[in-house]
Simulated scan of single mutants.
Amino acid sequence: MSLYVAYVLVGLAIAMPVGAITVEMTKQGLKNGFMHGWAVGLGGMTIDVVLVFALYMGLASILAMPMIQLPMWLIGAGFLFLLGYDSIKNADQDITLAGEKVTKSIFASYFNGLLVAISPGNLVFWVNVFGVVLAKSYSQGQPTNFLIIAAGVLSGILLHDIGLLTIVSMTRKALNRKMIKTLTMLAGFLLIGFAGYFIYEFIQAIKVYR
């Protein structure tokens, strides 16, 4: 139990820095409320869970290969740029103020979370963090510890998402349409910034593997 609790705290710490998933969650939470923001988070966690078990089955060695990682940076950059551009272009679309009926599908928000999570940053994170944890667990003859640690980290991320979206949903009640539009555009620029960071990582990786 102490191992699980320790890694719940690790999960919270991991989720604190602003990333692409956090930006998309906040954006959807502001525009359409708690459930849409949480749907993005659940979409991201779906990929996380799949990756954890895939790494447990040996995917880490494949994802660590340069020929796999290099195109992933470019694909991820392209997707995040398009998502950011769409956020800016359609910043005034699909805004539902507190008390109004939401027309956007929950599944659409969930699907956005899935797509954002299939990014190089997310994949490389799981390879680096859980690859090390998995190796250590096996070296100690306790492979089941890996699953306990994974459950702890995922629980910490889930707690972070719920806490963040609770704050967002409360803040949303005090915002008007223009303010939500401005914040949505800011989220779009942040996503484009992440795309730029992925391109930077792609260039650095080429230099290393040249």
Rank of each mutant, 00 (worst) to 15 (best):
Q204H: 06
G37C: 08
I148Y: 04
K104V: 13
K207Y: 09
G193Y: 00
Y197F: 12
K89P: 01
N112F: 10
V133E: 15
L9I: 15
V132C: 13
N145I: 05
A91P: 08
M35Q: 10
A174R: 09
Q204I: 07
K178Q: 08
D161P: 11
K31D: 00
H36W: 14
S61D: 07
L9T: 13
V8R: 08
Q93Y: 07
A174W: 05
A195D: 01
Y138M: 15
A195V: 04
G37I: 12
D161T: 12
A151V: 06
G41F: 00
G121V: 02
F34C: 02
F198D: 13
N90T: 08
Y200R: 10
K89F: 07
H36Q: 14
L147A: 13
S61L: 04
F189Q: 13
S155I: 02
D86W: 08
M65R: 09
L63Q: 04
I75N: 01
L30N: 00
V153T: 07
Q204P: 05
G41I: 01
Q28A: 10
I106H: 09
L70M: 04
N145D: 15
V52F: 07
L191K: 10
V129I: 13
I21L: 14
Y110R: 02
D92P: 00
Y85R: 13
T171L: 13
L12S: 02
G41S: 01
F125Y: 15
V5Y: 08
Q140C: 11
G76C: 02
I95P: 02
G163N: 11
T171P: 04
A150Y: 00
P120S: 15
T22D: 03
S61G: 05
M1R: 13
M35E: 07
A39Y: 03
K104G: 08
Q69I: 05
W38D: 00
A174E: 11
G84K: 03
W126A: 03
G33P: 09
V23D: 00
P143Y: 12
L12Q: 06
V129K: 15
G163E: 06
A135G: 15
Q28W: 10
Q142K: 15
M25F: 10
L97R: 08
Y200G: 09
S119T: 11
G84R: 04
K27R: 15
G19S: 02
F53A: 08
E201Y: 00
L183P: 06
R210V: 04
T103A: 15
I167W: 08
V127S: 12
G121E: 01
S169N: 15
G37S: 03
I75P: 00
V124L: 15
T46Y: 05
G33K: 03
F34S: 01
I62N: 07
P71A: 05
Y110H: 01
V52S: 10
G19W: 00
I88E: 04
T184Q: 03
A205T: 10
Y209W: 09
M179L: 07
T171M: 11
A60V: 04
K104N: 10
M45Q: 14
P143K: 14
V49K: 06
V102H: 08
K207T: 07
G188A: 06
D86M: 08
I149C: 07
Q93H: 11
V5E: 04
S119Y: 07
K31A: 01
Y7K: 11
F202N: 06
K136I: 12
T103K: 13
I95D: 02
A20S: 13
G37Y: 02
F198I: 02
E24L: 14
L30T: 00
L80M: 12
I206L: 11
F79Q: 02
F198Q: 10
F53M: 12
A77G: 00
L115S: 09
F202T: 05
